[in-house]
């Protein structure tokens, strides 16, 4: 009987000690998780970072963020035409899925362009201003409009609404500033 009591006491003590410890650590961990919380970048944010932010809507979504949201929810990753294959590759890497070729419906010439308003034709209807996703068009009703080249993302959303077709997309000129060293131009041989 005595040994039983002793054993019981011992067992109870052990339970109490372990229970106390678990409570203590639980509290510690709980505190730490609140106090030292690390704000991780949500997936949508990371995806949004990869997209080119032209806000062109060619993917079928009204902007880059909504498409990022859709991709996070399982939408196809190959709908960003301005981003091209590079962007698809990056998204595939982030999402851990296979790289796909650019969606056929979206296969467009994605060389960098800027919109240009032929100023003598502009009637000042402000329709392009309303269409511009980044407010890069300057103008007022019945006044000539013009495009701030530095802010234009080349999304060509302004081209369609123009009633007099005075907006054209001009490829960005190659200068010594944005020139890319060309493997074909200089005698370099690629070895695999």
């Amino acid at each position: 009987m005595e040994t039983f009591v002793a054993n019981l006491t011992f067992a109870l003590l052990a339970i109490a000690v372990l229970g106390g410890m678990s409570l203590l650590f639980g509290a510690l961990l709980g505190y730490a998780s609140v106090k030292f919380k690390v704000e991780s970048d949500p997936l949508v944010e990371q995806l949004d970072q990869l997209l080119p932010q032209t806000q062109c809507g060619q993917c079928g979504y009204p902007g880059c963020k909504p498409y990022a949201q859709a991709v996070a929810n399982g939408e196809a990753i190959n709908k960003c035409a301005p981003g091209g294959d590079d962007t698809i590759k990056k998204i595939a890497e982030l999402m851990g899925v296979e790289v796909e070729p650019l969606d056929e419906n979206h296969e467009v010439d994605n060389s960098p362009k800027v919109a240009f308003i032929i100023e003598e034709d502009c009637i000042g209807c402000t329709k392009c201003i309303q269409a511009c996703p980044v407010d890069a068009i300057l103008g007022a009703a019945k006044q000539m409009h013009t495009i701030i080249i530095d802010e234009c993302t080349g999304c060509d959303l302004c081209v369609e609404p123009c009633p007099v077709d005075c907006i054209e997309m001009i490829p960005i000129e190659k200068t010594t500033q944005n020139w890319q060293w060309d493997l074909n131009n200089i005698p370099v041989v690629q070895v695999d």
């Binding site: 932010q53 980044v134 407010d135 944005n178 890319q180 493997l183 200089i186």
Partner: peptide
């Protein structure tokens, strides 16, 4: 030559990144 190519590419990527950041803020502001 390879370094020069890579440097130019990275410079361009950097410029594009800055541009996209700018476009994003403008889009949000709009």
């Amino acid at each position: 030559h390879y370094y020069r190519i890579a440097k130019a590419e990275m410079r361009e990527q950097h410029v594009l990144h800055l541009q996209s950041e700018k476009a994003k803020t403008r889009f949000e502001a709009r």
